[in-house]
Every structure is written in C-alpha cells, then in structure tokens.
Design a protein around this nucleic acid. Structure first.
Length: 553
RNA sequence: GCGCUCGUAGCUCAACGGAUAGAGCAUUUGACUACGGAUCAAAAGGUUGCAGGUUCGAAUCCUGCCGAGCGCACCA
C-alpha cells in the first residue's frame, strides 16, 4: 500500500464516520499521512483527528477513536493506535507494505512522476550572467539548482521552458569590447574595464579570426571587438553550461528586444494600462501603485531606454509566449528587484503573486587551505564554473550546490570536496547505487533472478530494516511533489541521502544473495525486488538532480 | 535611516505548525574466514541569537530587540 492509497483510506474513514452521523464536520480535501520519526509510532501516522477536533467540537482523542474503529477494517491495515494528543498511528501488515517494492519496479522511471502541474506553462530564467566574463560561483549555484528545478517541475507535469537572458545591449558590453580592443593593442585597460587572462585570450582569438582588424579605424575596431567578443563569450558560456549538464531551451537576447521594437511596444502597452507618466523629461512607470518603493524610469530624459524598460519588455515577451508562471532566480545582491518585477506584472494587468515568482539565492563562499577564496574580477582571481568542475567534478559540484536550500549561504570547502570522500554526500548516494548494481551482477552470475511478479512474496520483507527501506521508498512521490510545489530541489537530495542510508542498513543486516552453496529462496527473490525498487528510486532521484548514477565507482 | 534574507551541535547543513529538533565531518569506542568497509553499530555533543505573543502543539507564524549578509540611481 502506498502512502497515497493509505491517505485515501483515512479519508474514506472520515467520510464514513460523518455519513454515519457520528461526527458533524466538513470532510477535508485531503489528509496527510507521514512516516513517524519514532518507530514505536507505527508505519504511518496522521494528525487528521487533531485537525478535525476543533471544527467538530469534540476532543481530539474522541475523534481519533471514531476514525480508528473504521480504519481497522481496511485490508492491509494491521493495527491502529491512538497516541499523544490524538495522533493515529497505523501499522500495515508486511505483505501490504512489501507490495510497494513491486509497485516501484513496475512503475520504473515513472515512479515519482505525477501530474499535479499538468497544463501549467512555467518559464525558468536563471544564471543570466553578463556575457562579459566566465560564469562565477554564484551563477553555478543557480545552474545546478535551476536546472534541477526544471527537471522536477517537468516530472510534475508542467511544461517548462528554461531560459538564459543575455545582457548584450548595455554599456557593460561596450566596456567589454573596449577592454578587448585595449588588450589586443597592448594598451592598458580603460577605467572600470575588464581584466583577466580570459580577456587576453579572447582578444587574441579575435585578432586571429579577423586579420587586419588592428589596421581598422578605432571606431570600427571597437565594433569588431564588441560583437565578436560577445559571440565568443556567449559560446563559451554555452559550452560551460552544457558540460555542466545544464541545457537552456532559449538564449534570449536583450538586444533583440530593442531591435524588434519590443521595448517601445512594451512601453505603449503599459501606457494603455494607465501606469505610465511623464516627469522631468523622462517617461516613468508608476510602480509605487503596486508596492515598489519608488517609481521607475523607462526612458531617460536623454531619450535612452533603461535596463528596467528591457525588463518590462522581457516580461511581456515571456507572457506573450504563453508562460503562466515566470520564475526569476536572482542572487542575493539583486533582491531589491523583487518589488519592481512584481510591479511590472501588476502594471501589465497581471497578478504579480501568480505570474511572477522570484527566488533569491544567497551567496556561495569557497574555502581552500582554511581561507576564503575571494572572487574579484579586478584581481582576476574569480572562481569560474570550469574551475569548480576541474576541482571536484560535475556530479559533486552539482550535488553540493543543490543539496542546500538557496535561502542559506553556502560554504564549500574545496579541500574537503577534493580529498576526502565522506563529506561528499553524493558519494554516499552513488555508492548505494553501485552496491545494488554489484549485487545485481553477482545475482546474474549465480543465475538468480527476482522472478515473475506473481511469484513475489512481499510478506517476507518483514524485518525492521526492510520495513524502514520500504517506508522510505513510499515517500518518494510526495518528496518530488513538494520539491516542485515549493521550488526546492534540495528536498530531493536530502531524501536520497536518507534512502541511501536505509539501503546501507538493510544491506548490512539482510543478506540478499545466498552464500556458499545455499540455494536461492523466496526471501532471496523478495529482497532482489526490494533492491531493484531502491535502485529505481535512486536513479530517478539522481536524474532529477542531473547527477549520474554510476554502476561502479 | 528604510527594506529584503538569514541566525539550529565545535564545523558544514536539514527539518511543508506535529510526538524525544536530525544527518555528515571532527572526537571516543566497536564490526570484515559474508553479496564492494566510499559501509554499519554505539557514545558524546542543543535554552534552535534574546524576550514576549498566537494554540491542543512553535526552530517554523506575529511583535520587539541583538547580530550577520545584501540592497535602497534618469547605472547596467
């Protein structure tokens, strides 16, 4: 029996009690059942009696009594106990619990997927770092988290578009081009320009690819360096992302918004909505109507449009392309944008609470040799995505960045992640998978097969370790669903660590394959079903994180 | 000054208002003549920054302090 099925059983018990007139209360939409932390509290627990007590005007334990009587009658339910203030602690019989292994194996890669967000079109924009240099560590965090979130939302039925916004229109790109030009000519980098080995490299590539460029007039030279540099840098970022296992469906050019006239049209559309006004020779959007702390300029007095105007046009583009939910993943240094982004949606006549979601990622600190590795573009010692991958590999990098909530600042110790293995939690999970593959190889060599589904004897999986592992397997769909709903991929990683732990303990206490000249038994086969089910969930879960599940390590 | 985010074991981090706040690392002690020891078992480690409040129940929600990070442009 899966937790979802048990939840339905509890719900029907509530319904039965109400229909019998034993309780006067509105039947809830759904009830939660969860694995209690304490094993003495049964296989599953529900707090539904506590929640119904107040509306029903009855003591919680009395409500629990009524529900308990009904629940006892359900097939597969072995025992129901009332505990504490009114929790219902439910114990399943071993066969009912063990059947989960077959459910999981038969569902295969579909296990954990659901349709909760079917039909919802979600746009995920993340990283979007200026193409004036390599992706640094803050962007890498979003690459790992954002890509994983995309996978999780897709597994929940949503239609997801992942998107990278290229800031290719502003003065930063001009400075970038000027820096390249200076480097190519052996001149000092202009004031607040870009420095670093990568600038020299790119400048050289441009000179090699454009013979005679240095003979052109200054202005023409600059244009070559600007546009060729942009192309090279964006290609470089794309390559880094793909190597990191992160694919963007759309690379959206800010410049294209200007070239197509979309920025001007956006301003007109906002004006029609009545939130645009002129003051001091500039054109403004009255974002204070919707909670922003000050109004924002769309067109400056000198006629240039602002970055904010591009933001507005970009948001409208996302909406025009059919995205109902638009998720922005920003670094903590951009949290001040939340108000104005939401105000854009409101000014456009949308619902800012529904159509825009902003996730803020706190900073990532990296430590090596006990000291923080400071990133500074000026000093040229930035930590880039390629550095991180070189040091610890894609799997460890993605996993370490995705296993924590983006709400918390993260400190990664390079020495720990490179040298020891035990603080690389990803290995703990991957090792569990490798062990299962090893068992499967050994079984094949011995000519042992888990057998047909109808011969599977789930009731044999009755030890505490098997019970714990089965219970954990049952939680997976709910973990995926809440990770999607809360936009928190780290829940999947934490779950996998718990699952791997249950597997390791099961492996230690429950011999799967026969030893020596023993014969394979029904128990052997039942445990192979369980191991296969676990492997399925680990593969599916790691897949949601974009992390590999190696068969050997 | 105003605003946003965050204060949890020595360290790095978990915990959708639920029962005795959990993992890993580090420390101490055990387990391979058995499927991979990158494992397992056990000990020790906490006034969840502080003080109030809300309720059957608070690390979680509210208020006020304290501390940390980051923002408050006709910059991008």
């Amino acid at each position: 029996m899966t937790p979802a099925e048990l939840s339905q059983a509890v719900l029907s018990a509530v319904r039965a009690v109400v229909e019998a007139g034993e309780l006067t209360v509105a039947v809830p939409e759904q009830v939660t059942v969860e694995r209690p932390k304490n094993k003495d509290h049964g296989d599953y627990a529900t707090n539904v009696a506590l929640q119904l007590a107040k509306p029903a005007g009855r003591p919680p334990r009395q409500v629990a009594e009524l529900l308990s009587a009904r629940l006892q009658e359900f097939p597969g339910v072995a025992k129901v106990e009332i505990a504490g203030p009114g929790f219902l602690n439910i114990t399943l019989d071993a066969a009912s619990q063990g059947a989960l292994a077959r459910t999981v194996v038969e569902a295969g890669e579909a296990y954990g997927r659901n349709e909760a967000l079917r039909g919802l079109r979600i746009n995920l924009e993340f990283v979007s770092a200026n193409p004036t240099g390599p992706i640094h560590i803050g962007g890498v965090r979003w690459a790992a988290v954002g890509d994983s979130l995309g996978r999780i939302l897709r597994a929940t039925g949503a239609e997801v578009t992942t998107e990278y916004y290229i800031n290719d229109a502003g003065v930063q790109i001009s400075k970038f081009g000027a820096s390249l030009q200076a480097a190519a000519n052996g001149r000092p980098v202009p004031e607040d320009g870009y420095v670093g080995a990568y600038i020299v490299d790119i400048a050289k590539q441009i000179v090699d690819g454009h013979p005679g460029v240095l003979d052109l007039p200054e202005a023409e030279q600059l244009e070559v360096f600007r546009s060729a540099g942009l192309t090279l840098m964006v290609d470089e970022i794309k390559r880094s992302m793909e190597e990191f296992g992160v694919h963007f469906d759309v690379w959206f050019s800010e410049k294209s918004l200007h070239d197509s006239g979309a920025v001007g049209q956006a301003i007109e559309r906002l004006r029609e909505q009545g939130h645009v006004f002129d003051r001091d020779g500039a054109i403004w959007l009255r974002t204070t109507d919707f909670g922003d702390d000050k109004d924002r300029v769309l067109v400056k007095a000198d006629g240039d449009t602002t970055y904010f105007a591009s933001d507005a046009a970009y948001y409208l583009s996302k909406r025009d392309r059919g995205n109902a939910v638009n998720v922005y993943m920003l670094g903590a240094d951009h949290h001040g944008y939340v108000g104005r982004l939401k105000a854009i949606a409101a000014c456009a006549g949308d619902d800012p609470e529904l159509n825009i979601e902003v996730l803020i990622g706190q900073f990532v600190k990296m430590i090596r040799a006990g000291e923080e590795v400071r990133m500074s573009k000026r000093a040229g010692n930035i930590i880039t995505i390629d550095d991180v991958v070189d040091w610890i590999g894609v799997d460890a990098a993605r996993y370490s960045l995705a296993r924590s909530s983006t709400d918390s600042t993260l400190t990664l110790d390079i020495d720990v992640l490179t040298s020891t293995s035990n603080e690389n939690h990803v290995y703990y999970v991957q090792y569990a998978h490798s062990r299962m593959c090893s068992v499967a190889r050994n079984a094949a060599q011995l000519g042992i097969d888990k057998g047909a589904a109808e011969d599977f004897r789930p009731e044999l999986l009755d030890s505490p370790w098997e019970n714990a592992l089965l219970g954990k397997l049952g939680e997976f769909p709910q973990v995926v669903a809440s990770a999607a709903e809360l936009r928190e991929p780290h829940r999947v990683a934490r779950y996998l660590e718990q699952l791997a732990g249950e597997y390791h303990r099961f492996y230690d206490n429950c011999r799967i394959l026969p030893r020596g000249d023993e014969e394979a038994t029904d128990l052997t086969r039942a445990r192979l079903w369980l191991a296969d089910a676990t492997r399925t969930v680990i593969v599916n879960g790691l897949g949601l994180l974009g992390v590999s599940a190696p068969e050997r390590m």
